[in-house]
């Protein structure tokens, strides 16, 4: 895989983000190759979430962000509006799920239907039968795990090329963590995933590549197994022992 010359799916060059006077991203350079799962790792406050938001145009950034979809055309994402970026086939599941609590489950999914994509309600309900039973329930009354299912269902409803998923297992019970990881692993067979994750068990199981952010810069990138195998480096970069579960 690493020998191919096709351009990476996503490339960020010298991306800076300043918010409320803080310099949060200080020249991020990274690439995400097509296919598989790339884990975005780092301590709390390192800039992982901001990196993802910069890709989506949810925070103002400087620098270059490019996306090369399956049509082979190179698209410059930086400076575009969020909804235009998303329409290139980029799905986003934010850290706190951000499902619409005042809308029903079905309404949450209807809202997520993108005009330029077929809608796979069947696939979603097959993956999460529970959501079908609860389709008329307000999303705000769901448990955290069920809300995460809605957030992931929104991603899988449309045809996407890249999924940006921010800490999908945060705050979930171990059984649910396994279930979410299973669903994401199945999704990864068809679509590239950039996964922000603190749970190293999940990372070890799913990630092909890893990128470590530290103080707004990329501190390490390479094959995930290599990072996971190096206990000293993991402790140094992430401040955790690799044998641990949650950070």
């Amino acid at each position: 895989m690493s020998g191919t010359v096709t351009p990476p799916l996503l490339r960020m060059s010298d991306v800076h983000v300043r918010l409320s006077g803080s310099h949060i991203l200080q020249g991020v350079d990274l690439t995400v190759r097509r296919g598989g799962v790339t884990a975005l790792l780092g301590r709390n406050g390192a800039g992982k979430t901001t990196t993802v938001k910069a890709v989506l145009g949810l925070v103002p950034s400087t620098g270059t962000i490019e996306f090369t979809g399956s049509d082979g055309r190179n698209q410059r994402l930086s400076g575009r509006r969020t909804h235009e970026i998303v329409r290139h086939g980029i799905g986003y599941a934010p850290e706190d799920r951000e499902v619409f609590g005042g809308l029903t489950v079905a309404e949450n999914l209807t809202l997520a239907e993108r005009r330029n994509s077929p809608h796979h309600h069947d696939r979603v309900y097959e993956l999460f039968p529970e959501l079908k039973q609860r389709s008329r329930q307000l999303a705000g009354t769901l448990s955290g795990g069920q809300q995460q299912m809605v957030a992931i269902a929104r991603l899988l409803l449309n045809d996407n090329q890249l999924l940006l998923i921010d800490e999908p297992t945060k705050g979930l019970a171990p059984l649910l963590v396994a279930e979410v990881a299973e669903v994401l692993a199945r999704a990864a067979e068809e679509v590239t995933i950039l996964l922000v994750e603190q749970n190293l068990t999940v990372v070890r199981r799913m990630a092909d590549d890893a990128i470590v952010v530290d103080q707004g810069r990329i501190a390490w990138s390479g094959p995930a197994p290599e990072l996971m195998a190096d206990a000293d480096r993991t402790r140094e970069l992430l401040g955790v022992a690799t044998t641990g579960g949650h950070a």
Binding site: L56, L58, R81, T82, H83, V86, R87, Y92, P94, E98, F100, G101, G102, L103, E107, T110, L111, A112, R114, R115, R154, N158
Partner: peptide, 24 residues
């Protein structure tokens, strides 16, 4: 209506609506 849905969702969380590819 779909516009109604977008408005209700936008009141709750405007930026997430745009992140679903909707020109709010």
């Amino acid at each position: 209506t779909r516009f109604g849905l977008i408005i209700r969702a936008g009141v709750e969380n405007r930026s997430m609506v745009t992140a679903l590819g909707i020109d709010v």
